[in-house]
Structure formats: C-alpha cells, structure tokens
C-alpha cells in the first residue's frame, strides 16, 4: 500500500481533549467545602485569592448559644451535602468507580441523619424531613427559621 500521501500526524487533528480524572483521596468534608472541591488534584487556586486568606473561614455571626449550636449543625450538614454535590458530578463521568460509589452511599446516609437531626432540634429543611424528623412538630415550611439568604441567622 502506498501511504506516502497519508498524514503522519500522531494525534487527531481539530479536536481538543481533556484527560480523565483518576480517583484521588478526598479532603475531609469541612476542607472540601472551604476549597470548593472534594478532590485535592482539582484544587487549582488563583494567586490573588491566596493573599491574606490563610484563615479564610466563614466567621460566625451567631448571637446566642442556641444559634451557635444550630450553626454548627448546619455547617456539618453543608459539608456533607457539598461532598455529595461534588461526588455526584464525579460519578456522572465515572459511574463505575469502585471507590466513588460506596462513598456516595455512605454520605447519603449521613446526610439523611443530619437532616433528620436538624428537623428534630430546629425545623425541617426539606418536606421529607417533616416526617423523618420530629413527628410531633407542627412546623410547616416558611414560618420557621430564617430564610437561607439571611445567612442562616436573623
């Protein structure tokens, strides 16, 4: 076969490619939320965002012990829920990952427990937590607790 006219370019032309992420050991969940990703290998910060932010943790605006406690439970729930958000996208493109899937189920279980605990102690954050939490509570929806855009506290 005469292949003198065939292109010898080693790669496919006119098409970009992005390497697939391999599983990398996740951050703890509080760090994940702070950094915006569960995966250290995808944490690629901007130099201007580093300056003076070494202790960049959301500061509390809680004004009573009750608020402090509620804020602490909300922080736990936010961290676990965000780990689920990030893992969701990872599993969308790695549905067969033997490490990702069991962790996903474990986190979903933890999240269910935290939502229930929150509903038990304060007020339901989702409709389903009206029955998984304190069943004697007659809380319904928007009357209880601050609106999320108030910063979780009023």
């Amino acid at each position: 076969m005469d292949d003198t006219n065939l292109c010898t370019c080693p790669e496919i032309l006119a098409m970009a490619s992005v390497p697939r992420q391999n599983w990398c050991e996740p951050y703890d969940y509080e760090t994940s939320l702070k950094e915006g990703t569960l995966f250290p290998c995808l944490n690629l910060p901007f130099y201007k965002a580093e300056e003076g932010d070494s202790n960049l943790k959301s500061t509390s605006i809680a004004s009573s012990p009750e608020e402090t406690q509620r804020e602490s439970l909300m922080s736990k729930l936010s961290a676990i829920s965000f780990a689920i958000n990030d893992l969701t996208l990872y599993l969308d493109t790695h549905p067969d990952c033997p490490k990702g899937l069991p962790l996903f189920k474990e986190l979903l279980q933890k999240r269910l427990e935290l939502l229930t605990e929150y509903a038990d102690q304060y007020y339901p954050l989702t409709q389903i937590s009206m029955i998984t939490g304190n069943k004697d509570c007659n809380c319904y929806g928007w009357g209880e607790g601050p609106a999320p855009w108030e910063g979780g506290l009023i």
Partner: peptide, 22 residues
C-alpha cells in the same frame, strides 16, 4: 471572598467534568 473563592473553584471542577463529557 470566601464564597467567591468557592464559586471560582467550582468553575474549574465543572470544566473538568465537561471535558470528560466531551
């Protein structure tokens, strides 16, 4: 800055996922 840093990080993760979708 804290929420802005978080949102910026999400853009990079989403880029990676769209790359994998490609």
């Amino acid at each position: 800055r804290a929420p802005l840093k978080f949102l910026r990080a999400r853009e990079i993760v989403h880029f990676q996922r769209f790359g994998e979708a490609l």
